[in-house]
Nucleic acid binder design. Structure first.
Lengths: 219, 219
DNA sequence: CACGATTCTCTTGTATGCACAAACAGAATC
DNA sequence: GATTCTGTTTGTGCATACAAGAGAATCGTG
């Protein structure tokens, strides 16, 4: 078996992401340890690691609470994500092989059905694959990591904007723009198309964030 | 006094940055604890946190080693940094107040002396302030955090490119371009100028990285 | 002499005990 | 009645003891 602390970290992370633990909820080492049938040590380590990755915040001598996003931070993350995804698209346009572009194009075409039927569930998965293909094409693991981490921290609100029925079809159309730009090897166009695409989803996200209850501020 | 684990983490981090600990050096909890006169627990926590931030890598049951950068990763980070700094400059051009622009401009002018005299030591500090002013002007803490973390991970090689005497003066000139673009409120120009600036430093960095001995690969 | 299994050691990973710091509650005083 | 001081309680932070796994060395065997 893997390390117990890793197990705890992973499960705790899932709970936070899935919303079982909501921002502001406090986590104490002892009950966490009991819940996972381990001692305080690995529980504590799990908390520390999550704190380092920004999912929980710690105040000295005061324990950890599930990190909430202030509206300001959520906006900053979205803005940053736009830049990161845009850069990835630009790099992909310069670096993807003909075969990869072909594959991307084919995948995109195949996902049309789900989009037209507003099948959010299926499309969310296809969307993830689409973006993953772009990251791979960008040939920059560090950039991809930053994007993944950023998305992860924003997905507190399980709410992908793609849960909005109307959003799915538009998303697919926007993907088309990105694909065309990449296929024509135009980095600037690919970046612009991707930025628009992310921003477009971001507007829906902004509504969700703005509608959030008062969040805990992380000292 | 602050937490012992924080103290250890901080000092260890400094040692890594300053090159006292080189990539590939292994860190064992016991000697680390002895060196800082604490028990293994805070030492271990420090290592865990550094691992989470990517400065050291851990293999289960094998302990931690100071993370090395493969050339591939170094390139990826530099490339990403260019994008991040460029975005920050663009945002700063849109958001800095007149007073801030005035201040930035003044600071830049004042740093000319150090640049013309190739005073690396002084200029490195002025350079840091300059960039910090840009981040502040960008009004995006998350973006600023990513930049700082990225720079931190690249500064293994204490070698700021600014240690190159010749680089200092060019850097100052490039800063001038950024300042002018921001002053004229032109985000695209600011981004372009900043990208050039970072890339320009990056070329020196690339030489350093390429000249590195064989690095440890992080499983 | 070479190769392999076994043991031995060293280090990590986990559990638990202890001390201290901060919040909370209650009582006493203003 | 409000405020402050103090005792208590709770939970973090650190230390140390214990268990387990990985690697090295040694001993046995072919």
């Amino acid at each position: 078996m893997a390390k117990a602390s890793d197990k705890v970290r992973e499960l705790l992370e899932r709970e936070i992401r899935h919303g079982a633990l909501r921002p502001g909820d406090s986590i104490d080492e002892r009950s966490l340890a009991e819940r996972f049938s381990v001692s305080r040590t690995p529980a504590r380590e799990a908390i520390l690691q999550l704190a380092a990755s920004g999912l929980v915040t710690m105040r000295p001598r005061h324990g950890a609470v599930v990190a909430g996003l202030e509206v300001k931070d959520a906006i900053a993350m979205m803005e940053t994500l736009v830049a990161l995804e845009g850069e990835a698209a630009a790099l992909a346009a310069r670096r993807m092989s003909a075969a990869e572009v072909e594959e991307l194009s084919r995948r995109h075409a195949e996902s049309e059905a789900a989009a037209r039927e507003h099948d959010s569930r299926a499309y969310i998965d296809l969307n993830a694959r689409f973006h993953a293909a772009i990251y791979a094409g960008a040939r920059n693991d560090y950039l991809a990591g930053l994007i993944r981490n950023t998305r992860s921290r924003m997905s507190f609100f399980h709410a992908s904007s793609l849960n909005q029925r109307a959003r799915v079809e538009r998303s697919w159309d926007e993907h088309g723009g990105v694909v065309r730009a990449i296929a024509s090897g135009d980095p600037a166009a690919a970046e612009a198309a991707m930025r628009d695409h992310i921003l477009s989803g971001g507007r829906v996200y902004a509504d969700l964030v703005a509608a959030m209850p008062r969040e805990t501020s992380a000292g």
